[in-house]
Design a protein around this nucleic acid. Structure first.
Lengths: 344, 344
DNA sequence: AATTATCATTAAATCGATTTAACAATAATT
DNA sequence: AATTATTGTTAAATCGATTTAATGATAATT
């Protein structure tokens, strides 16, 4: 019981494959094909469950109905959740997803783009690493629909979906200040990506405004958590005067919690905590950690909407749009120094 | 600067595309093509960066170099980690991954299989839901390489990679018993899948052996965490005599922790905890939760090794293998009643 | 010298669809 | 009656590769 081809269908019904193709692609009316014939073909096709070979179709039409999704790391809960939502929306619209993790590695990303291109994906959704500007520009120049998310590339003019990073950290830092914390550190990964820089800036702005001194620790990213925890631990040991710490990403935050546990520090008495990104770890830590929650559903929705839009309107010259979404600041028991002080 | 085709290359070098194809596919020697010609072609191909159109190639050869990966839910950290590792290994071997989440929904899975098939994926890696036996069998009958993981289908004779679920829960339950816990509950999702049944059985066996009474709560899975937490909470409220709880999956465990927090229960004094699957939430809870860690690297390695093996050996009739891997039981502060008692 | 073997290359068929251009058959118009 | 329009259908070209079978040229053998 091998697969039927359009020729088999045509032979069996004694019509040409052209006719079958027209009917199956909804061009029967346009091509004035007899109603009875259309019905006969439809019936038979349904009966035997014939489905056109998508490879052949893609080869001829140049469309693959596949979207390439490049995240930083699919095992990071933030990206995993986004991927999950994008996947759902894409499938509902007849698109499949090929995804991959860039590890923020420019060379790896370059190869992956080339692979996607080779596979003729119809569109790209990318959380781009630094240094990939030229490759993305070249994609766009060749008319490929590209949507960036989580961060953008200032030198590249294309659509992107981001959150208001600067305001988010500014706002959360202000919260710490208002609670009476004076020595607030900011721990993050060393990165020039837009979202990371904006987050850092938001923190700096808030401190500046209040005449407080910033304490910043930038950690080089590594797959090996030990290499993240070591400098983090050293930093906390060095600055004994800190009364609050702001983590720039969920990953840093998680490593931070591990370090805090291993150092035997008490939250929020020794140290108040706030982290970017929100997930179960922060909710379930004791006391639960205040965190900035990204609107992942809205991000996924926006990304896929923008991309589908680009895929459907063939006109290339619609000006590109930037969508900036708001975050939620979930305040929890990890930074209630002021209230505690009052309660005493 | 559009893409070059093999014809362009052939024309430019004044040889036939057949020759180009042979050279590029490493059949130059076999076809006795002159060394100088081979070099000339190689050089030019490298120079212009020509890459064969993979769609055309797939259409002709019937191979797509794509592996279909179907997990239960890509946003679940267990599956996300496995996916990540499988992705790495696959890329290294020249394969790409198309993944999707089944949600344990048989109908959805059926459609996804059909979609994968339609896309001519070369091989399948599936964490199968119940009721999908016939579809998988039909895949296998048609000669498609299939590897199941995390669970298997007793009625389907194919390769699979699993862990020793029964022993894992048996062992961990015995640990609780030895620590002096008498009323140990087991909370899990209602499921007839092999891994879930085996885990439950391991728990039952341990209790049986010690003449203890089982307390079992099976929860119907839902996307909405509230619908998981509600019955879980009700169960804990109803059975005030429990002194320990065993969670059957990381997801149940996480929901369980949330419920325990909201009920204001103290661990391990009110309740000792153990969960299947290990991840940051369990490590960072206070006190940290003992958990059964699956060897995700080994699982990913085994899965991809078995699949690549099947892809490379065309012979269909190698008997299928079952790989059963061991787990680690990470004992943490959430079940140290006995020790505490001694310490008093 | 005729036949066979070896060598190096290529023309043509093929995979399974879509799409363009053409072709009969009938009806309508001049 | 000849020409043009309309209707319904299809032959053939095309997408870009791989693969089979064939070809012409030279060398070796009888």
């Amino acid at each position: 019981m091998k697969k039927l081809s359009i020729v088999d269908i045509a032979n069996h019904l004694n019509v040409s494959k052209t006719t079958i193709s027209f009917i199956l692609n909804g061009r029967a009316q346009e091509k004035r094909i007899g109603k009875d014939l259309v019905e006969r073909v439809q019936k038979f096709v349904d009966e035997v469950g014939y489905k056109p070979n998508s490879l052949a179709k893609s080869l001829r039409t140049g469309k693959s109905n596949i979207i390439g999704l490049m995240v930083e790391d699919i095992s990071n809960p933030f990206f995993a959740s986004i991927a999950r939502l994008i996947e759902d929306r894409a499938y509902k619209n007849g698109y499949k997803i090929i995804y991959c993790s860039t590890d923020n590695d420019t060379q790896k990303t370059r190869e992956l783009i080339s692979m996607f291109r080779d596979r003729h994906v119809d569109g790209y959704i990318i959380a781009p690493p630094e240094g990939i500007e030229d490759d993305i520009s070249s994609l766009i120049k060749d008319g490929m629909p590209v949507v960036l998310f989580d961060r953008h590339l200032p030198k590249v003019n294309t659509d992107f979906v981001e959150i208001d990073n600067l305001f988010s950290t500014y706002n959360a830092t202000m919260h710490l200040v208002q609670q009476g914390y004076k020595n607030i550190a900011y721990i993050t990964f060393a990165s020039n990506q837009t979202q990371m820089q904006a987050r850092l800036q938001g923190y700096k702005n808030a401190l500046d405004e209040n005449g407080l001194k910033p304490f910043i620790q930038e950690i080089v990213f590594s797959q090996d958590e030990e290499l993240i925890m070591a400098p983090l631990s050293a930093f906390l040991k060095k600055h004994k005067n800190l009364d609050a710490v702001f983590f720039g990403t969920n990953h840093v935050g998680t490593c931070g919690l591990k370090v805090i546990n291993s150092l035997g520090l008490t939250v929020p008495n020794d140290l108040a905590l706030v982290s970017f990104d929100d997930y179960d770890v922060f909710k379930l830590f004791s006391p639960p950690v205040s965190a900035i929650a990204q609107p992942i559903e809205a991000i996924a929705d926006s990304v896929i909407t923008v991309l589908l839009n680009k895929l459907n309107t063939s006109s290339q010259h619609i000006s590109s749009q930037s969508i900036i979404l708001k975050t939620d600041f979930n305040i929890r028991g990890s930074s209630k120094k002021a209230e505690k002080a009052v309660a005493k």
